[in-house]
Design a protein around this nucleic acid. Structure first.
Lengths: 207, 207, 207, 207
DNA sequence: CATGAATGAGTCTTCATTCAT
DNA sequence: CATGAATGAAGACTCATTCAT
C-alpha cells in the first residue's frame, strides 16, 4: 500500500502541536508567577492553567526547574533583543546619544513584564537562576564593553571591566526599581535624563 | 481577606537558657540560608541544625515566617546601624567627603554577610519580605534625604525624591553586586573611588 | 471571622477507579470510627487502612472534616430513607398502626451500624456535626409534623412543635440506646410494644 | 529536737492549697470545655487558664484523661445529688406526684451547666467516658427501680428493667435536648406537664 | 502521545509529657 | 513542690513525579 506522496511537511502538524503545548505551559507559568507568586507555581497548577494534563507537561519538560529555566531564557532573550535591537545601529554614535538610548531600552525591556522580571529575580531559588538569567546581562555587558572599547579615545576608562560593571548594574537596577516602585517616575522623561546625567558625567569626567 | 499570620516572636527570651535557644535558632537559620538556600530552610532542618527539638523552635517562633522575619529585622538593623554610625557625624561635612564614606559604609554593611543578604533579597517570597527588609533602606533613604536637604544650596537637585532614589539604589546595587560578584574589586579602593566619582559628578553637575 | 473550611468533596468520582477509591476511603473511615474511635481516625491511618496512599485521599477530600462529613451525610441519608420508605405509604393510616411502624423503622435504622451512629453522635466535635448530621432528624421531624397535622382531629396536640420534638427525640433516643446497650431488648417485640404504648397513650390522651 | 505540739492541723495548709489547685484546674477545664470546645482543651492551655505552671498540673493529675474523668465524676455527682435530694423524700408519694418532680429535677440538673453536659456527652472520646459518666444514670436508675418496685402493685410493669430503662432514658434525653435546643420550652411549665403526661399515661395504662 | 489517578517523601505545626532548676 | 523549657511522636496536608490506561 504505497503512501500518498505529499509536498506538505509530514510531521509539521505534530511539531506544531508540540510548540503550542510548550507555549501554553510557559504562558501559564508566566501568569501564575506574576499573578500568584512562585510558591503557587506547582506543576499541577501549571498544567491545569495551561489546559493540559499533568502527564503531558512532563512530556515536554523533565522537571519543574526546567520550566522556570525555559521561562528565564525566554525572558532573557526578549530583554537582550530589545536592548540589542535598539543599540546595535548606534555603535558609531557618540556617548551623549547612546546612553539615553540605552536607558530608554532598559526601561522598555523592564516594561515587557515588570512583575515577571521581579519574581524571576527575587523569588526563584538561586540554584535555578544563575546560568539562565544572567545571559541577558552578559549579552548587554558585551555590547557595552565593545562600545566602550570603540570609543576608548573619548572615554578612556581607568578600568574597562569595572566601568562595564558599573554601567550595566546601575542601569539595570535603576530601571528595575523605577518600573516597580516608582511608575510615576517613568511617565515623563525626567528620570531618563537624570540617569543619563548620572552616567554621562561619570563617563566624560576628565581624569 | 486572608488572615495575616502573626510574624512577631512568641515569647521574649527572658531567661538565659531561652536566649541561647533563640540565638541558636537564628544562627542555624542563617547558616542554612547561606549554605543551602531558602528552600532547604524547613523548620525541622532548622531545629536540627540548631541542636534543639522542633517543639522548642515553636516555643519561640509562632511559624516559619517569623523566623525569617526576625532574621531580616536583625540583619536590617545591623546594616542600618553601620551606615548610620558611619555617617551621623558627617552631617555637616561636604559631599566630597560624605559620598566616599557612604560607599565605604555600604560596602562594610554588605560585607557582614553578603550571602545572607543575597538570599534575603533574592530568594524569599516577596510577601514575607517587604515590611521587614525595607526598613534599612528606608532609614538610609531618610538619612540621605536629610543630608541633601541640608546641602541644598550646593547641590540643588532638580527632584529631591528622585535623587534620593537614584543615590540609594545605585549604592545598594553596586555594593551588593560587587561584594558578591567581584570580590576582587573590593580589595583596593579603586571601586570606591569609581562609584564616588559616579555619584559626585552627578550631584555636582552644574545645571 | 474564621474562614469556613470547605467540606464538600474535591472531585466527583466519575471514573470507575475513582469511585472505588472513594468508597475504600469511606469504608476505612467507618471501620476506624467504629473499631478504634474518632481520635484514631487520622488521615494517614485512614489512607493506610483504605490501602491507598495519603496523597490519593487528598485527591478526593479537601480535608479531614470532609471525610467525616461525607460519612455523616451518607449515614443520614440511609437512615432517613429507611424511615421515609417505611412510613410514606402509611400517611393515611391511623396512629395505632403508624407508631409501631415508626418504632420498627427507627430500630431498623439504628441497626444499620449502631456503633457508627454512636461515634458520629457522641465523639465528633460538634462544630463539624450540626449541619450534616441533623438532616435525617429534620427530614423525619417533617414527616411527623405532617402526619400529626393530617390527623389533627384525632390527636389535637396542645403544642404541635413540642409534640413533634417529644416524639422524635424519644424514639431516637430509646432506639439508639436500646440497640447499643440492650440488644436483648430488641430480639423480641416487647420493646417495640412498650415504646408504642408510651407514645400512643400520650398521643391519645383525652385532654 | 522535740516537735512543738499543736492541735491545729499541721498539713492542712498544704492540703488546702492542693485542693485549691485541683479546683482551679477543674474550673479552668470546665471553662475551656464550655467556651472553646474539647479540642482546645490542651493541658498547657488548661494550666495557663488555671494560673499554674504545666508542671504543677501533672503534680495533681497523671494525664489529660484523668482531668476530664475527674470533671465527669464531679458533674455526675452534682447531677445525681440534685435528683436524689429532690426525690428521696418522695419515696412514698404516688406516681402522679413523683413523675413531675423527677422531670423538674432532671431539668434542674441539666440547667447546672448545659453546655458542659453537652460537651461531656457529645465531644469526649468514648474511651474516657463510659465508666465515669454513667454513674449518675446508674444511681438514678437505681432510684427509679426501687420506686417502681415499691409501687409495684399500682404500676405492675410488664418488665421492670425495661421500664426503668425507658423512663430513665426518656427523661434524660428530653430534658437534655430541651435545655439545649428549646430553651423556650422550659420557660413555662408546659413542657414539664407534657413529659409528665407522656410517662404517666404509660405507667398507669391498664394492661 | 495524552491523560490523570496514584504516590509518598517531606512540610508545618501541635501537644501531652518530662525533668532540671 | 512549683516551674516552664524542652521534647519528639504524630497529625494534616502538599506537590513533584510516575505509570497504567
Amino acid at each position: 500500500m504505497p503512501r500518498k506522496r505529499s509536498i506538505s511537511p509530514r510531521k509539521l502538524p505534530k511539531q506544531e502541536r508540540s510548540r503550542i503545548t510548550v507555549e501554553a505551559i510557559l504562558e501559564a507559568t508566566t501568569r501564575i508567577l506574576t499573578e500568584e507568586g512562585y510558591d503557587k507555581a506547582s506543576t499541577n497548577h501549571i498544567a491545569e492553567r495551561a489546559g493540559i494534563g499533568i502527564g503531558s507537561l512532563y512530556q515536554y519538560f523533565p522537571n519543574k526547574e526546567s520550566i522556570v529555566a525555559a521561562l528565564m531564557e525566554q525572558h532573557s532573550n526578549e530583554i537582550a533583543e530589545i536592548v540589542e535591537s535598539k543599540l546595535s545601529h548606534l555603535f558609531d554614535r557618540p556617548i551623549e546619544m547612546v546612553i539615553p538610548e540605552l536607558i530608554k531600552a532598559a526601561i522598555a525591556a523592564h516594561a515587557i513584564n515588570p512583575r515577571l522580571h521581579q519574581v524571576l529575580n527575587e523569588e526563584i531559588p538561586q540554584s535555578e537562576r544563575l546560568q539562565q538569567m544572567q545571559q541577558a546581562e552578559k549579552r548587554i555587558a558585551g555590547l557595552l564593553r565593545a562600545y566602550l572599547e570603540r570609543w576608548n579615545d573619548d572615554i578612556h576608562p581607568r578600568n574597562l571591566e569595572m566601568t562595564v560593571f558599573i554601567l550595566g548594574r546601575t542601569v539595570e537596577s535603576l530601571c528595575h526599581s523605577a518600573v516597580l516602585e516608582h511608575p510615576d517616575f517613568i511617565t515623563n522623561s525626567q528620570f531618563e535624563r537624570e540617569v543619563s546625567d548620572l552616567l554621562l558625567f561619570y563617563l566624560k569626567r576628565t581624569n
